[in-house]
Simulated assay, not measured.
Amino acid sequence: MTAIRLFLSLPQLPAGGAPIAGSRIPPPAKAGGTLRFHWWTLLVGCLPLAHLAGGGGASLPLVERQVDEVLLTAAQTVLAVVLLLDLRFLPWKAALLLALFAVQFALPGESARFALGWVYLGIAVPLLALRLCQLPPTVRALAGRIEGDPH
């Protein structure tokens, strides 16, 4: 619990590493591709390291429900990133994400969540194959290098 309090008390950092003036709450994302580092990401990423430093083994023991939740969260993230590769959030994309998100409440069982994670990935992979040509322009846009853009 002490580690969680420590992380929550730290200031928010942008990707470059300089603190945002006096804020413990993340500011709204700015346009122009500024990516913000979030302390919760660091906290979750450090769990295996903390487990290892505390005398645990090389792998972090998780119960089946936790494995399913991690898979579902990662799969949701993958699908959302693939849908946003063209930097346009169209109504059908929102409806797809909302429908899939709502299904997890209708089917709360562990096996249903595991299967739903694979459904997310099953949708994301073919969409990614169709959108691979959009990957370089998206990376350039996120890095702030858009031709003709004065910002």
Score class of each variant (00 low, 15 high):
Leu43Trp: 14
Leu43Phe: 15
Leu43Ala: 05
Leu43Arg: 01
Leu43Ser: 02
Val44Ser: 03
Val44Leu: 11
Val44His: 10
Val44Gly: 01
Gly45Gln: 14
Gly45Tyr: 09
Gly45Asn: 13
Gly45Trp: 09
Cys46Phe: 13
Cys46Ala: 15
Cys46Met: 14
Cys46Asp: 11
Leu47Glu: 13
Leu47Val: 06
Leu47Asp: 03
Leu47Cys: 03
Pro48Tyr: 07
Pro48Val: 02
Pro48Gly: 01
Pro48Arg: 00
Leu49Asp: 11
Ala50Lys: 01
His51Pro: 03
His51Ser: 03
His51Gln: 06
His51Ile: 03
His51Lys: 02
His51Met: 04
Leu52Ala: 12
Leu52Arg: 15
Leu52Trp: 15
Leu52Ile: 12
Leu52Asn: 02
Gly54Ala: 15
Gly54Trp: 07
Gly54Cys: 11
Gly54Ile: 03
Gly54Asn: 09
Gly54Leu: 11
Gly54Tyr: 05
Gly55Gln: 06
Gly55Trp: 10
Gly55Asp: 09
Gly55Cys: 06
Gly55Leu: 06
Gly55Arg: 03
Gly56Tyr: 00
Gly56Pro: 00
Gly56Ala: 01
Gly57Ile: 08
Ala58His: 06
Ala58Phe: 14
Ser59Lys: 01
Ser59Val: 01
Ser59Glu: 05
Ser59His: 01
Leu60Trp: 02
Leu60His: 00
Leu60Arg: 00
Leu60Lys: 00
Leu60Cys: 00
Leu60Pro: 00
Leu60Asp: 02
Pro61Arg: 03
Pro61Val: 04
Leu62Ala: 01
Leu62Lys: 00
Leu62Phe: 00
Leu62Asp: 01
Val63Trp: 09
Val63Arg: 06
Val63Gln: 07
Glu64Thr: 02
Arg65Tyr: 08
Arg65Ala: 13
Arg65Gly: 01
Arg65Gln: 06
Arg65Ile: 07
Arg65Thr: 04
Arg65Val: 05
Arg65Met: 06
Arg65Asn: 03
Gln66Tyr: 05
Gln66Ala: 10
Gln66Arg: 05
Gln66Leu: 07
Gln66Glu: 15
Val67Asn: 01
Val67Thr: 04
Val67Pro: 00
Asp68Gln: 13
Asp68Lys: 04
Asp68Ile: 04
Glu69Leu: 15
Glu69His: 09
Glu69Trp: 12
Val70Tyr: 08
Val70Asp: 08
Leu71Tyr: 08
Leu71Val: 13
Leu71Cys: 09
Leu71Phe: 10
Leu71Lys: 08
Leu72Thr: 09
Leu72His: 11
Leu72Trp: 12
Leu72Gln: 12
Leu72Cys: 09
Thr73Asn: 14
Thr73Trp: 11
Thr73Glu: 11
Thr73Cys: 10
Thr73Met: 12
Ala74Asp: 11
Ala74Ser: 14
Ala74Glu: 12
Ala74Thr: 14
Ala74Pro: 02
Ala74Leu: 14
Ala74Met: 11
Ala75Val: 07
Gln76Glu: 15
Thr77Tyr: 08
Thr77Leu: 12
Thr77Pro: 04
Thr77Met: 10
Val78Ala: 12
Val78Pro: 00
Val78Trp: 07
Leu79Asn: 08
Leu79Val: 09
Leu79Ile: 10
Leu79Lys: 05
Ala80Met: 09
Val81Thr: 14
Val81Ser: 10
Val81Tyr: 07
Val82Lys: 04
Val82Phe: 09
Val82Pro: 03
Val82Tyr: 09
Leu83Ile: 11
Leu83Cys: 13
Leu83Lys: 07
Leu84Pro: 02
Leu84Ala: 14
Leu84Asn: 12
Leu84Met: 13
Leu84Arg: 06
